[in-house]
Simulated assay, not measured.
Amino acid sequence: MNGSDSLARGVPPGRPGTLHARTVCGDLTAPPRPGLTVRFGRGEKPGTDLGVGVDDRRVSRRHGELTFRAGGWWLRNTGQQLVRLPEGRMMHTSSEPIPLATGYTPLFVQGSGHREHLVELYVTDHDDRGPVSSRRAETVRPERWVLSDEERLLLVVLGQHYLEYEPDPRPLTYSRAAEQLGFLRPDGGWTARKIEYRVEAVRRRLHRTGFKYPLIHDNPDERPSDNTLLHNLLKGLVASTTLVPPDLDLMDDAQGWPAQPPYGPGR
C-alpha cells in the first residue's frame, strides 16, 4: 500500500452502504447485504477475507470482523490484541460491536512491540447524493500539495501521531525526529537544525499557495520553529489528504523503534 492508493481519498461511486477495505496485503469491496460478514486477520482464506499483519504472530488469524445488519456495518474485535480507532478509542475482545460510520475510518491492529497494522475502511454514504443538478458533475477534490520524497518522509515522521488519528495530536520534537530519521536514513545527515529549516522552507512555499491554516509568523523576527505553525502544517496536510495513513509505511524500516516520549516543544 502507498499513499496514492489510500481510501482516505475516496472511492468510486457505488451503491450506498458498500464497504471498501484495504491493507498492505490487498483490498476488497463488499455489498450491503444483510448477514454478510467480512473477516480480517493474519490467517488465510477462506477463514480470513483480508490479510493484515501476516508476518506478525501477535495478530490473530481472525482478528476482527465487519457484519452488515440493521442497515449498517458493525465492527467487532475477535483477536487477542487491541484494535485502535480514531480519537484513541480501543476495542477489546470483550467489547460490544460498534457501528461503523459512513465515510473513511482507519483501524490500527496492535502487533508485536510498538508495531501497529493499518486497516483502511470506507463505507459509501447513504445520504450524500447532492443536489439533482450536480449528480453528473465531477466531484470537487480537496487541494493537495506536492512534496518531494524527502519532505514526505520528514513530515510523516514529524506528523505520525496525526496519521495515527490520535486524540489531540502533537508533532514529534525536532530532536526526536532527527534520531528517528537517522535510523531510517543513516546517510541523510539529519539534525534538529536541518529539520527546522526544511520545515520552514515547506511552510513558506505552501504559504504562498493559499494554505488553509496560518504557516508564517506575523512578526518576521519570530523563530521559524514555532510549534503552532508546525501543528497547522501537519493538520492541513492530513486534512487535505496530502498525507494519508498509508504513508506511515515509509517508516517500516523503524519497526521496533522505541516508544515515543511525552510531547514537547516542536524543536
Rank of each mutant, 00 (worst) to 15 (best):
G130H: 11
G130Q: 10
P131C: 08
P131T: 08
V132Q: 12
V132N: 06
A137L: 14
E138A: 15
E138L: 15
T139S: 13
T139P: 08
V140W: 09
P142I: 08
E143Q: 13
R144E: 14
W145Q: 07
V146P: 07
S148P: 03
D149R: 10
D149K: 08
E150Q: 14
E150P: 02
E151F: 07
R152E: 06
L154G: 02
L155D: 02
Q160K: 06
Y165E: 06
P169M: 12
P169S: 11
P171K: 02
T173Y: 05
T173K: 04
Y174Q: 03
Y174T: 05
R176L: 11
R176A: 13
R176Y: 09
R176K: 09
A177H: 01
E179Q: 14
Q180G: 02
Q180N: 00
Q180R: 15
L181R: 03
L181S: 01
G182T: 11
G182L: 12
F183Y: 11
L184P: 01
L184V: 07
L184E: 04
D187E: 13
D187L: 09
G188T: 03
T191I: 09
R193G: 05
R193C: 02
R193V: 09
K194F: 02
I195H: 02
V199M: 06
A201M: 04
A201R: 15
R203G: 01
R203C: 04
R203Y: 02
R204V: 03
R204G: 03
R205W: 01
L206P: 00
L206N: 01
H207N: 13
R208M: 05
T209H: 11
T209F: 11
G210S: 12
K212P: 06
K212Q: 11
K212R: 15
Y213C: 00
Y213T: 04
P214H: 09
L215P: 00
I216H: 00
I216W: 03
H217Q: 05
H217C: 01
